[in-house]
Amino acid sequence: MAAGGDHGSPDSYRSPLASRYASPEMCFVFSDRYKFRTWRQLWLWLAEAEQTLGLPITDEQIQEMKSNLENIDFKMAAEEEKRLRHDVMAHVHTFGHCCPKAAGIIHLGATSCYVGDNTDLIILRNALDLLLPKLARVISRLADFAKERASLPTLGFTHFQPAQLTTVGKRCCLWIQDLCMDLQNLKRVRDDLRFRGVKGTTGTQASFLQLFEGDDHKVEQLDKMVTEKAGFKRAFIITGQTYTRKVDIEVLSVLASLGASVHKICTDIRLLANLKEMEEPFEKQQIGSSAMPYKRNPMRSERCCSLARHLMTLVMDPLQTASVQWFERTLDDSANRRICLAEAFLTADTILNTLQNISEGLVVYPKVIERRIRQELPFMATENIIMAMVKAGGSRQDCHEKIRVLSQQAASVVKQEGGDNDLIERIQVDAYFSPIHSQLDHLLDPSSFTGRASQQVQRFLEEEVYPLLKPYESVMKVKAELCL
């Protein structure tokens, strides 16, 4: 049975990233139509530049190519590739079939990587351009969430054990800070992308030097003109047959890092959902379990974690691919890159769409948070109580021993009897502590235990987050809708 299948058929496997999760716009960027249309555009740009620099290419040939950029006979191309065992030459023939007058000058002087690699770089750039505003929107939604809850005390956790208090907004800023680093890295790697350009079979530009009869300047002009037509500021000066596969490492490393950030955020949300302090959106008709109707599973956060793990592992592909590119190139890269580049971007696209949807509907339960604080705060307040007693004339050592005994009794009630923490009640009825009984409410005010959390939130948002989001103001209103 021949390899390949009808990918629109229910009898043929289709990647869930495309069929179930990723956005239509990201799927289109990695589609065959987008790819092969870009090949034709690159052939047109090459012909236009070659004509401008004096090669015998007519206006009629150029116009014929322009008129057929979208006229792609995919069936013919597939048949040609089956016959020739070469995808680029299959599309040269297919393009030439609908451009008979231009057929002889299509791909003039070029090698397969002229269309293959340059198209990949265009796709990487455009895919990054799709991700950047999506990530900015996630940051914006979380920034709104953090600002609104900047002063809401909550129990902090280290080692997932109760620690000092923080605020809900401050905790959210930990998430935002990681995503801001990801946004900066995505922008950097996007701006650092260079075009492969017009380089020939081993990167020496020998074929173009021959076409222009040894004119170095025209060869350099050709490279520059096509690079500018493709919208790049610069091209690699040095290439082998391909652009260095280190570029793929750079791009997928940034995406993998984004995956790590999203995994951490969504894990926190899942843990908070278990504590009943916070939940992701839950639709009115949504079913959490087929057997347990009360369940409210954090399905979206779980999906993000599941896909983020996949995204983090994909960076190993370009690392290994770059390491086995012998001399000017081997074909070890080809099949692998067809999979890992598309999957990385479709996965990143999915987790950003999902995280935006989550961040637009996060639900906080202040009463649950308050109750958990009441359970733990008495123990945390013991040092403040000791200091207040010393100020009232008591002995630190005597007070410490009193607190120690009462704390152990209260802990026994919590752990052995399943009761509430009654340390404060014990202190309130103990005559030894009568000098500070009137101060206990103040000493137990949760806001006095959150330090500068709310001020940190305000400063972080104003100095770091809002300036970073400013270039994306025009796209901030787009909502994230999930079908599944």
Rank of each mutant, 00 (worst) to 15 (best):
Ser474Glu: 14
Gln221Glu: 12
Tyr21Asp: 00
Gly109Phe: 03
Glu64Leu: 10
Ser407His: 04
Glu250Asp: 12
Arg245Pro: 01
Val219Leu: 12
Phe345Asp: 04
Gln177Ile: 13
Asp317Ser: 09
Leu69Cys: 14
Arg303Asn: 01
Arg404Trp: 09
Arg149Glu: 12
Ser257Thr: 08
Cys99Ser: 12
Tyr466Lys: 14
His159Gly: 01
Leu183His: 12
Gly5His: 05
Ile249Asp: 07
Ser395Ala: 08
Leu461Arg: 04
Thr321Pro: 04
Arg329Ile: 06
Ala163Ile: 00
Gln408Ala: 14
Lys233Cys: 09
Met316Asp: 06
His93Val: 13
Gly169Lys: 06
Arg85Asn: 03
Thr382Leu: 02
Leu193His: 08
Leu311Glu: 03
Phe345Pro: 03
Glu25Phe: 02
Ile358Glu: 07
Ala410Arg: 07
Glu213Gly: 13
Ala78Thr: 13
Ile403Ser: 03
Val88Trp: 00
Ile403Thr: 06
Asn357Asp: 11
Glu302Ser: 00
Pro133Lys: 14
Pro467Arg: 09
Thr330Met: 04
Lys170Leu: 06
Gln286Ile: 01
Phe208Asp: 01
Ala136Lys: 14
Leu44Met: 12
Arg141Thr: 15
Arg14Tyr: 15
Glu473His: 12
Glu148Tyr: 11
Ile122Glu: 00
Val315Ala: 08
Lys233Pro: 10
Glu148Pro: 05
Phe236Leu: 11
Glu279Trp: 07
Phe145Gln: 07
Met299Tyr: 09
Leu209Gln: 13
Arg171Leu: 01
Thr38Val: 13
Tyr432Gln: 08
Gly240Arg: 01
Ala78Val: 11
Gly214Thr: 12
Gln286Pro: 02
Cys266Phe: 05
Ser438Ile: 13
Ser306Glu: 04
Pro24Met: 13
Phe36Pro: 02
Pro435Glu: 10
Tyr13Asn: 10
Ala273Lys: 13
Asp144Ala: 15
Leu423Gln: 06
Leu44His: 07
Gln286Lys: 01
Glu48Val: 05
Gly156Lys: 00
Asn68Gln: 13
Gly54Phe: 07
Thr244Tyr: 06
Arg196Met: 15
Arg452Met: 10
His217Leu: 09
Leu346Ile: 14
Leu53Trp: 01
Gly288Ala: 08
Met292Asp: 07
Gln161Gly: 00
Ser253Thr: 14
Met225Leu: 13
Leu128Glu: 08
Phe74Val: 14
Arg83Asp: 13
Val262Glu: 00
Leu423Ser: 03
Ile139Asp: 02
Glu79His: 11
Ile123Pro: 02
Ala392Gly: 10
Leu165Ser: 01
Lys367Ser: 10
Asp349Gly: 08
Glu213Cys: 13
Glu302Leu: 07
Glu213Pro: 13
Thr330Val: 08
Arg303Tyr: 01
Glu481Ser: 14
Asp268Gly: 08
